[in-house]
Design a protein around this nucleic acid. Structure first.
Lengths: 341, 341
DNA sequence: ACCTGGCACTCGGTAGGATCGAGTGCCAAT
DNA sequence: ATTGGCACTCGATCCTACCGAGTGCCAGGT
């Protein structure tokens, strides 16, 4: 809907503004390659682009700045015409990272968020794949002392779920004994092993009323206690947020959001559901405190069709080609890595 | 070493500066209760305090600002003469927090860091007690698929340690079978249950060479893989750092440090070892990037004589009485809470 | 000997005014 | 339709003046 020249001009403005953070004037645009026109022509075109909402002037007789709509056009036009590449150094960094990577999944994801943050120079978020579809390899109930016990489940994807619970008390006020706990534990293991977390149902009665009570509590703890949303979010390079804005109040606000893991998870999930890879400004991602920010997101397809999520958060004025490339590469390689185990 | 009047004046300057963040002039001090002298006298005294390094002038003919040494005197004099109290609202908040608190230890610690941050309006840090002294309640080895397996240990304090490991391969290139894994698992359980994490030694040979190999790997994984330092640090209210300074560069630097969990842990542990509760400025805590920051720390004595740590990080210009009170109360109640289980 | 009122002095911060220059909008010529 | 030219705008920068909070010091009073 924009003719070629307008598109070229808009692209030039965005590119220059991303680089310099200064309002861009017609002369700069005219001089930039990709635009064949005099500054006067550019001026005319730019005033149209402003009328149509792609650009704004901070004040009369200053250069122009892209609006969110302007950025949107930019990234859309990017999608068609070959997205950016990482530079060789970064490519090497990614490669060496993923060949070296090993050990705990959580640890690796945390490191990955830092990698992504380093690559883009923005804050990165990594969310572990949910393990609803993972099968249970082992469950047990362990008495801790006093009235408390722990249900521990080991899943096929290598993660461990644990829940605290209170042991049922007998009529005389003392908690149930070790015998009951081990009985329940083996029963639980026999019944749940091999199932997925999603399909935990009731465990059939054993006849022993205390054992049944403990079993019920355990299953409830395992299914219910999904604080989940919080446990598996890794934020890397939050301090880089302070580079993006020079108003300390803005930084404060954004960091505040990042601390609310639930909000972050919801945000990324929501964007993925809507099929977006990049959300520019509050209009698109819907979080007013993050006005002036863009969110970039990609699914991480691992084993079992389960998908994790990675994303980055930066100012709307960010290097989209580079960031998109980084997210794409990392999501791909991370997915492959997870698949391998 | 400071006569009464000088001490009173210094205190007045610190208090006013903490409140207003503006250089304090002699008139304000003279008017403040606790100081009985004319502004001229105060001026004379203040110039002495400056000569002795307790105060500085940002520029000639401006008020005075406390130096780190000035703050140090202030908090020392505080220690003697009844430290501050939390206001009733805060008291109530703490109380309700700890009566409501339940569930996973990690989750509670994380929430605690947020509580402490809310109370003080600064960034708070909570470090879980190490579990070197906790005894092992249950260990098992779970094969995951392919060559990888997981060693999972449940400790008496309710935490769960897990380590990934690669299964040994047989001569024909396939990993050891389930029989070997279960054999090793039961053997490991029988031998380690009841011991503390600190005193894991070799497991005596079984005669079966593959089982022995797996056992050795498992024990090594459990003792070695102490990434530990990272896993148990909870930072709450990092965004509040942005309130403390108005130079975005400073914020950036401090946040950078907070992201390096190892540094944070080392810092707090070091301070505790040196018997400090409050470290003012880079000279005392030793981290140049945290110039202009004070660190406040307290041990959390839980069960088994094991101690966790809580602390807060804020600008040197912080409300010490209030912050000290908050840290003291939270450390005490958290300790009690952990003891209970 | 110490305190205190008074006074001259300093110097950061704010307000007004001039200047500069990058940038715009518009118009007439190509 | 494009472009060179021109008048105009307006933020940024610099200078100056001025105000006021604050200081240092001195001389007089207790």
């Amino acid at each position: 809907m924009l003719d070629d020249r307008k598109a070229a001009i808009l692209r030039a403005v965005v590119e220059e503004y991303i680089e310099t953070a200064q309002p861009v004037g017609s002369q700069h645009v005219a001089r930039s390659r990709g635009v064949q026109a005099s500054s006067a022509t550019v001026r005319n075109e730019m005033s149209v682009l402003e009328r149509d909402g792609y650009l704004v002037q901070p004040h009369t007789s200053a250069g122009r700045i892209p609006t969110d709509k302007g950025y949107r056009f930019f990234v859309d036009s990017l999608h068609g015409w070959g997205a950016g590449q990482l530079n060789p150094g970064q490519r090497a960094e990614v490669k060496s990272f993923f060949t070296k990577a090993h050990g705990e999944l959580e640890h690796m994801l945390s490191e990955t968020s830092q990698l992504l943050s380093r690559l883009t120079d923005h804050t990165a978020v990594v969310i572990a794949p949910p393990h609803e579809a993972a099968t249970i390899r082992s469950v047990q109930i362990v008495a801790l002392g006093g009235r408390t016990a722990l249900v521990v489940a080991v899943l096929s994807n290598g993660s461990v779920e644990k829940r605290t619970l209170e042991l049922p008390v007998l009529d005389d006020g003392t908690p149930v004994g070790d015998a009951v706990v081990t009985a329940a534990s083996t029963r639980l293991a026999g019944y749940l092993t091999g199932r997925t977390v999603a399909q935990l149902g009731e465990v059939p009665s054993t006849g022993e009323v205390t054992v049944d009570a403990l079993l019920a509590t355990s299953v409830r703890a395992l299914t219910g206690g999904h604080d989940e949303e919080g446990g598996s979010v890794f934020v890397g390079g939050a301090s880089r947020m302070a580079n993006a804005f020079d108003a300390v109040a803005t930084v404060r606000q954004v960091l505040g959001i990042l601390e609310e893991q639930f909000v972050v998870v919801t945000l990324l999930r929501d964007l993925l559901d809507r099929g977006l890879t990049v959300a520019i400004g509050a209009d698109e991602h819907g979080l007013t405190p993050l006005a002036g920010c863009s969110v970039l997101v990609a699914p991480v397809r691992g084993a079992d069709g389960q998908t994790g999520t990675i994303g980055i958060l930066g100012p709307t004025r960010m290097n989209y080609p580079q960031a998109l490339a980084a997210v794409a590469v990392v999501s791909q390689r991370l997915g492959r890595r997870i698949e391998e185990g």
